[in-house]
Structure formats: structure tokens, C-alpha cells
């Protein structure tokens, strides 16, 4: 099956994988909203959603249906094309990151090794950064096209926050890359499986910085300055209604899911299960996949726990923390890592 020198089975395999991963991302994002409410209820000593289905499990479907049924509103003075482009871009960039994540080890089907990763590019982490830096546009375009001063203010805040925290995040990652010697996420996971311990052991400070920055990049509390309702009414999506609003809210949950997966991959061994070796490749892949999801679910829960525990930062506090706290800390971490690696290689 070779036409135009393309391996069509390979293409089909990748297409199926993309469809599966996107459906899983959306499904997880959907049930994150339910879980968020349950966690909030638990922390505030309430019951939470319990009407739609057992344990309120059908609540996300009901919410989705509600968003679909709402009236589509385009504000009269808005820029129609860009107004529509904003939420689309937010969703697109949220989804694109999942392409380089290794979801499990190889499957072995009909004599073919099927890698459960869409693209193992050798610049994996940098690709994630590229997509994250494009993620700013969804917020900015949406906020500006609404033609509302509160939306614009929120969009500018959100964009400058994302740019500021990207720097500390990158510096924290460079320290990790110094150790791994590779930018490919697949290689990083294999390496952690090979060395027997996870990267968190070597980079605890780096992980902490990365985690704080991930909170900021996802616009989660305590960094949800761009949706500070007490100052900015509702934030950059104030003029949005119906599924366009739904896309913005949903993109936040997809982002949260993907950044949890990336943290689990970089610092917590990805799909690697310690102390257990499974001989059958298909079963090993499945177990690894489930294990990665358990780690991810734990991270998502921590994200929510923080949201319902810590109050929101003031804007100057946010900028101070980013530029005067995290960036110097990340630089020191980088320096120490570099010195240790240098001494280590000389012996």
C-alpha cells in the first residue's frame, strides 16, 4: 500500500491514535468539571452535584446541553471574525500539545509495533513550548474582538502573565534537560525507567517551579487574574455566550489535563511503573497507560485542591513572584544542576 511514497497503514494508525487521544482529552476535560465540583463541595463541606444521574455523573452532559441551547450572541460592536476565532484558537492550541506525549510503551498488533505516541520528534519539549506560546492568542484575540474594556484589560493581563511565567518554566526545564540530554519526551520516559528512579528525585526545586508556572499557564487560581470577577466583571470571555464560552471554559480544563500529563511524564516517570516488569508488551502498554492516568488524575486533583484553598493573588504580587521570585530561583537551580553535572562527568 504505497502511493505517493506514503505508508498508508502508518497514516491510518496515526489518524486512529489522534482521534482516540482527542476524544480522551475531551472526555477527561468533561469529567474534570464534575470532579472540580465534587472536590469543591468536599472542601466546603457540601454534597456537590447529585441530581443528574448517580453521584451526579450526568452533570457534565447536562451542562454541555445547556451551553449548546443558549443563544449565540455576537455583540453589535464586536469584530465578528476574530470574535469567533478566539475560542477556536484557544481550543486548538489546548489540543495540539498532546501530539508529542508518549501515552504508553509500544503495542504489538499483527506483527507491527504500534507506538502510542503521535509524533516522537526530537524537539518534543520545545514543541510544547511553541504551542503554549501560541496559546496566548486565543485569549488576546477574544478579549480584543469583544470590544469591551474589561475584556481587553483581562486579555492583556492574561497574556502578560502567560509570557512572564513561560520564562521561569523554560529555565526550570533547561535544568531537567541538562540531566536527560534529550528533548524528546519518549526518550525522557525511557531514561527514567532505565535509571530506576524518577526525575523528581534529582529536580525537586525544578519541579516546584514548573508546577507553579503550570498553574499560571492554565490560568488557574491563585493565578486566575484574567478572570478576576470582582475587578473585571468576568474576564476576557465576558461577552461570550453559548458554546463559544463553553470552548473557553473547556480549553482551560483540557490545558489542565495536558499539563498534568506533561508533569507526570517529565518528573514522575510517565507510563513507567516502578518495581514491576510485565513481559507481554500489550498488557504492559495497557498497565502503563492506566498508571500514567492515575498520576495525571492525582495532579488534576491537586490543581483543584489549590483552587479551593488559596485566594487569588493581586496583580503586582503575581508579577513580583514571577520575575523576582521564580526566575532567580530557576536560575540558581540551573546553575547548581550544571555544576553538579560538570563535577560528575569529570570523575
Amino acid at each position: 500500500m504505497h502511493l505517493l511514497a506514503i505508508d498508508w497503514i502508518f497514516l491510518l494508525e496515526k489518524l486512529i491514535l489522534i482521534v482516540i487521544i482527542i476524544s480522551i482529552s475531551l472526555g477527561v476535560a468533561m469529567y474534570s468539571t464534575w470532579w472540580e465540583r465534587k472536590v469543591a463541595a468536599w472542601i466546603q463541606d457540601r454534597i456537590g452535584p447529585n441530581r443528574a444521574g448517580p453521584l451526579g455523573l450526568l452533570q457534565p452532559l447536562a451542562d454541555g446541553l445547556k451551553l449548546f441551547m443558549k443563544e449565540e450572541i455576537f455583540p453589535a460592536s464586536s469584530n465578528k471574525i476574530l470574535f469567533l476565532l478566539g475560542p477556536c484558537l484557544a481550543m486548538l492550541t489546548a489540543m495540539m500539545t498532546s501530539a508529542v506525549v508518549p501515552w504508553a510503551s509500544h503495542l504489538h498488533i499483527a506483527g507491527r509495533d504500534v507506538p502510542l505516541q503521535i509524533a516522537d520528534v526530537n524537539i518534543g519539549i520545545l514543541y510544547v513550548f511553541g504551542v503554549v506560546s501560541m496559546g496566548v492568542y486565543g485569549v488576546m484575540i477574544g478579549g480584543w474582538a469583544s470590544n469591551n474594556k474589561f475584556s481587553l484589560m483581562a486579555a492583556v493581563r492574561g497574556a502578560s502573565q502567560i509570557i512572564s511565567y513561560e520564562l521561569a518554566m523554560g529555565l526550570a526545564l533547561i535544568a531537567l534537560v541538562l540531566h536527560t540530554g534529550s528533548l524528546s519526551l519518549g526518550v525522557i520516559v525511557e531514561q527514567q525507567a532505565h535509571q530506576g528512579y524518577w526525575n523528581i528525585v534529582l529536580q525537586p526545586l525544578g519541579f516546584l517551579i514548573f508546577f507553579v508556572c503550570a498553574l499560571a499557564e492554565c490560568n488557574r487560581t491563585p493565578f486566575d487574574l484574567s478572570e478576576a470577577e470582582s475587578e473585571l466583571n468576568f474576564g476576557y470571555h465576558q461577552e461570550y455566550s453559548s458554546m463559544k464560552l463553553g470552548f473557553y471554559l473547556f480549553a482551560e480544563y483540557v490545558n489542565m489535563f495536558i499539563s498534568s500529563v506533561i508533569m507526570a511524564t517529565l518528573y514522575f516517570g510517565g507510563y513507567h511503573i516502578p518495581f514491576i516488569h510485565i513481559a507481554d508488551p500489550n498488557f504492559a502498554a495497557l498497565a502503563g497507560f492506566i498508571f500514567l492516568f492515575a498520576k495525571t488524575a492525582a495532579f488534576i486533583t491537586v490543581f483543584m485542591w489549590i483552587r479551593w484553598t488559596v485566594p487569588r493573588f493581586r496583580y503586582d504580587q503575581l508579577m513580583n513572584l514571577g520575575w523576582k521570585g521564580l526566575i532567580p530561583l530557576a536560575l540558581i537551580n540551573l546553575l547548581i544542576t550544571a555544576v553538579v553535572i560538570l563535577l560528575h562527568t569529570q570523575h
Binding site: 511553541g130 506560546s133 501560541m134 492568542y137 488576546m140 480584543w144 497574556a159
Partner: peptide, 16 residues
Amino acid sequence: VVNVIVYAGAIMVLFL
């Protein structure tokens, strides 16, 4: 990827 991060990501955001 650096072209995307630096030019399309950072510099164009400042323009915007």
C-alpha cells in the same frame, strides 16, 4: 520551533 516560540509567540504578542 525557535522561530515559532520567539517570533510567532513572543514578538508578535508584543506587536499585538
